[in-house]
């Protein structure tokens, strides 16, 4: 069971290169047919340097190189009992294919509901690119039932 002493704890940094192939695969998986997300020429015509990272894909990239089970162990959570509770993104600059993004994550909050029957852990991730530009902030809450 997680306790509030976890708040502020760093969960480390991951770095990932945004690959065009992954973006096209993601577009297919979510039924995205706008060529801006799959065709470089269309992306450039729309003013992007390359294929843009779709709004929720930052969360997927942030999971890259991160062992979910290891992370859950820190909280004392089991993978079969957790659910995603909340998710939020603040966008500062577009991220595109070819960018190398750094995700710096820490525990932002720990709390419980229903007299402890539901336990929540909230993480906060700062996303920056290869030029040190602040791309986004991602907030994510998981709950263990």
């Amino acid at each position: 069971m997680p306790d509030r002493s976890l708040i502020g704890r760093s969960l480390g940094e991951t770095t990932v290169e945004v690959e065009k192939g992954r973006l096209r695969f993601f577009a297919k998986a979510i039924g995205e047919t706008d060529p801006v997300y799959t065709d470089e020429a269309a992306a450039k015509a729309a003013g992007y340097k390359s294929l843009p990272v779709p709004p929720t894909f930052l969360m997927c990239l942030g999971g890259e190189g991160r062992d979910l089970e290891e992370q859950l162990k820190i909280y004392g959570f089991e993978v079969a009992r957790i659910l995603h509770a909340e998710q939020a993104f603040d966008y500062h600059k577009p991220a595109v294919a070819g960018d190398v993004l750094t995700f710096s994550t820490s525990v932002a909050d720990v709390y419980e509901k229903k007299g402890g029957a539901l336990q929540f852990v909230v993480t906060q991730t700062r996303v920056t690119n290869q030029d040190g530009e602040h791309i986004a902030d991602v907030r994510s809450a998981v709950v263990q039932r």
């Binding site: 993601f26 998986a29 979510i30 039924g31 995205e32 706008d34 801006v36 729309a46 003013g47 843009p52 779709p54 709004p55 929720t56 894909f57 659910l83 995603h84 509770a85 909340e86 998710q87 939020a88 993104f89 603040d90 966008y91 577009p94 907030r139």
Partner: peptide
Amino acid sequence: AYLGRLLTNWVPQRQIRNFSMRF
């Protein structure tokens, strides 16, 4: 992601400032 598409179908993605949800 479908909610993301709802938004990007409506406006270009670079106009989205914040996007938050509860499951």
